[in-house]
Amino acid sequence: MKKLSIYLILFVLLVGISSQVMAITADEIINRRDKNEFVVSAYSEAKMIITNSGRKLVKEMRSWQEEGMALAEFTNPRDRGTKFLKRDDNLWMFFPEAEDVVKISGHMLEQGMMGSDFSYEDMLESDDLTDLYQFKLLGEEEVKGRTAYKLEGIKVPGKDVAYYRRIIWVDKDRFIGLKEELYAESGRLLKVAETLEVKEIEGRWYPVRSIMNNKLKKNTSTEFVLQKINFNPDLPEDIFSLERLR
């Protein structure tokens, strides 16, 4: 009996190792990308360049994040003091002028954050994409001079997700998302996100410049530029509390 179980364990291990050597699955690619882009805790400074029909708006912010929590504070003169607090699936906003905290929920989640092409909902999106989508590896393609896996994810029936279908290109070596197309159930392309620049920071590859295009609107895009990021910084205590938001 004991022998049998040892054989069994050995067998399972072997199968596991050989399949990894042989071919990587779609879910593994997504998980590796998410693991790579997932930040346990960080302090960052970034700017958002919102282009809408030729008009350009630049918004600057700094943010702190730790696992499911994040706090972002806008620093450009026009929005100075506006803060967002994300705690798992909840999002609050603080308006300095009204000195009021508002919970963003319902239809408000569909709106673009601070007028950008990133919706509040996009910000709240859960990281476990493989639970929500059935991923399929479509092949390999060249994206911006880099070889990338091309994957298609279709919503798992019964799951509440915003986008029915996603096409994702993941850098084959660095496991960084290079491009992502988000589709409606009707097949219409709604949004395209592209990574414009990747940098090696503290020993890991991290996207530092990306752009989101809302395909339902002409001539609008939002560029997100990460100017500084420190991984695992010392975060002030209770920084993610509602009290600190005010």
């Binding site: 569909e110 919503k155 019964g158 799951k159 509440d160 997700v161 915003a162 986008y163 029915y164 409606a184 159930e185 009707s186 219409r188 709604l190 339902l216």
Partner: peptide, 16 residues
């Protein structure tokens, strides 16, 4: 026109 709607499962859909 394009009407952007959410289905019963909160998934985006469009009515063109």
């Amino acid at each position: 026109i394009v009407l952007l709607v959410r289905t019963e499962e909160e998934t985006f859909n469009t009515i063109d």
